[in-house]
Amino acid sequence: MNRFSYSRPGAVSEAVRAVQAEAGAKFIAGGTNLVDLMKYDVERPRRLVDVGALPGLDRIEEQAGGLRIGALVTNSALAYDPRIQERYPLLSRAVLSGASPQLRNAATTGGNLLQRTRCYYFYDTGTPCNKREPGTGCPAVNGVNRIHAILGTSEHCIATHPSDMCVALAALEASVEVTGPGGDRRIALADFHRLPGDQPERDSTLGADEIVTAVQLPPKGFPANYTYLKLRDRQSYAFALVSVAAALEMDGGSIREARLALGGVAHKPWRDPQAEALLRGRPATREAFAEAAALVLKDARGYGGNTFKIELARRAIIRALSQAAAGTPQPIADKHIA
């Protein structure tokens, strides 16, 4: 970990100015990912601007029939908030399936949006990586890629976005409030994270000096028919190989509204509006779910170690939609996959 200077501004605007004023300055809040990356020398900020105690950003508030989650609300506070549990249980489940209680107590909503990939090569400064050092190459394409992406990849990067929370947020059509030197703006979650293309060093569309201030949840929370299904290499405290957030609105036996997002398969939470459209108005049958899965995965590509994810994702989508339709969400502690 390099040496750096540190400041703790008292207001968002000051924080933005502090980061803008110094090349290599970065915001820090919970620190659970940034400090981790700094110890690996993957991140080497010149200054840390501590936004962790900024006032007013640690609240969950009613807004326009939905909820506004301050960027500093911790993952634990979010997941266990009664309003979230009641109205957006999909989000609660997703958050609780990620990391560990200790990490969730420290990690923030804003930080979770911005957490970086778990790609082995990205984390290892002894190896090339286009995301870490643009132009050095991507050894994962022909290397150890069990955890890598199958959708939306480029020859430059096959890393995945590791968040569980963001997968649920994508399904819920959340949006992100940000502020920066150019003022406030709102970014739809679908547009917040990006695909690697030829700029894998950029994870999101957030501007360099911008800061996330809140996440907005629209009114629709799908509290009756949802599931967050996470498949991983051990029963807890592991990143998703594949995860599926499924949220349905049912009209008797048929689907009125469908949301479907995948984690662990792409550089961003992978939402497929076409597959959702296909489900709309259809009876909730395995056939319909299988068609939707096929549509989601039609352009999926494996790289050897991760090729299994295509079949796994297909089955996981079907299972998640079935669970959602039946109103039997996947429990977090019960490892029996219902």
Binding site: G31, T32, V35, L48, D50, G52, Q102, L103, N105, A106
Partner: peptide, 15 residues
């Protein structure tokens, strides 16, 4: 009162 990983907490941020 809350459990955290002290390895990822910079002391200066916990004033």
């Amino acid at each position: 009162g809350q459990r955290i990983n002290s390895c990822l907490a910079l002391a200066v941020t916990k004033d």
